[in-house]
Design a protein around this nucleic acid. Sequence first.
RNA 1: GCUCUCGUAGCUCAAAUGGAUAGAGCAACAGACUUCUAAUCUGUAGGUUGUAGGUUCGAGUCCUACCGAGAGCGCCA
Length: 545
Amino acid sequence: MIAGIENIEKEISSVLKKYEILDNIEIRYSNLNNVDLQCNNLVKYSNNINLSSIKTDLISLIKENQLIESIEINEKNFINMNFSNQYFFEYSQSIAERIKHTQNYSIIFDYGGPNIGKDLHVGHIRTLNIGRSLYNIYKLAGNKVVSDIHFGDWGMPVAQIIAYIEHNNLDLEMLDYEDLETIYPKANQLSSENKDFYNTAKSIAMQLNSKNENYTKKWETVYNLAIPNIKTLLDKLRHKFDWYFGESDVVNETDLVVSKAIDEKRVKKDDGALISTQEVDPPILITKSDGSYLYLTTDLGTVLFRENKSSFDKYIYVVDSRQENHFKQLFTTVKHFGLSNSDFFHVGFGTINGSDNKPFKTRDGGVYKLNLLFEDIKEKLKKYNSDDQVLNTLTNTVLTYSDLLPNRNQNYIFDVDKFTDINGKTGIYIQYAQVRARKLLDSSTKPGSYNINYEINSEERNLLLLITKFDYFFNLSLINMEPHHLAEYLFNLSQAFNSFYTNNKIFSDKIPIETQINRIKIVEEFFKTISLVFNCLGIEAAESM
RNA sequence: GCUCUCGUAGCUCAAAUGGAUAGAGCAACAGACUUCUAAUCUGUAGGUUGUAGGUUCGAGUCCUACCGAGAGCGCCA
């Protein structure tokens, strides 16, 4: 989607129609230097007998178009065009307005998914960043969006914690959050080693489901210990959700899903467990042999819970790619059980690795907690600034931008030194460009408006061209649910601005006033655009650096 | 064994869903500060896109086979 070219496509189409060429005409940005747009439709008609008159007709028609400065059809029959200055002045403005009505769906985003007992760690970065970014992008496109954090606050993990506390006669009331963090890994390990302990935990999980008073009370204590802590860290990382529901909120719905499936004979017994009647390999397990619930069961209950709360056109789950099979099973079962008619998407992503290309750990091989990573990055950034607020913003920028830059399908290597450098494709580089523009605008008293007779130079042209390309990259990210297109664009935009900035002075007696006014207007449109991209990616702009 | 993701410059990554001469950033080399902050900018060099076929005007992109890396595969989440 390129802003403002629909009429040019129509014009080309009308010419080709006269010669009985009925192709769907597509104009695209060109990779070539010195060519803005290209149209490839004519290439395959090299043997058409009317070719030379087609060319003549096309050139004479397009030459009339005010948005196009030049058109050329080369020997291979590529149609090459360049934008006029008028195009840049017209389409570098009102970008946010243009994208506002791209879509109109009601969408729920399920991402984050922190678990009780496990502090947020490196593994949570991608779901949080990609989720927040897609939420923002879809919102800006005009959709009605809801985000739900989907806490992992139920089932075996929390039952294991309670079992461990009982097993070791710990006083639940005396525990603090740090204790909880050390308990869960131990409880989890014990559960896999000790059959009796495992059975105890499983029994607690079942009793929680049947609302046993004693365990519900203990669960509440654990919950109230863990959740505020998670929320505090999320706040520090600038993550907000519309809904903070968790697995614990959907217990009734999960019961309903299972009993309804039994009534409707959509499940059958298999070694005591319930499996879906869908003929798939492997079979889809709905409940364990003792009747207790699984990850999938709870997710089915969550769908019913959400259906009861509101109506969504799309469900988007931002969860790592390793769970692809789980989501395939979930989506097919949702349809099989008749729980929802909506479209379901799993947005997967790869793992974050260390420089050894193995999962990212601390130096001594432990789990890299997000809080610690935040502080480690912040420490590296102190060379740029001493203001704590600014440092927090920059730290969050590094955590976000570095993560959104690679294609989400791939694993990537988290290199703290590289990501905190001001040179290169980094969060610090883009913030610096933004701060430079901000300072120019702050010190400007000139009104911002274009003089369309102004002849632009190459740096100004590059910057304006990139600004008008926003729509294209926005749509690429939107349609593919891939924020990296906008992240890459953000770097190129910043780079074009820095080049413009270095080579074009504004506030100087030597610069004509008319040039000053036009340049300030360009800076203004750049600033509006980069702010919009920041918004899309979930990056907060630094006030100063 | 089956399924999924991936393989692009020394390193880290893009590449418009099939378009022209495959682009950036690091690192390397060579330049630019009396400045709206050089925290930047401007150049140079770097490639048989894992291998072999195929499809067509045209393939990093689609198809087939093979090689290599990572991940998942019934009662954890």
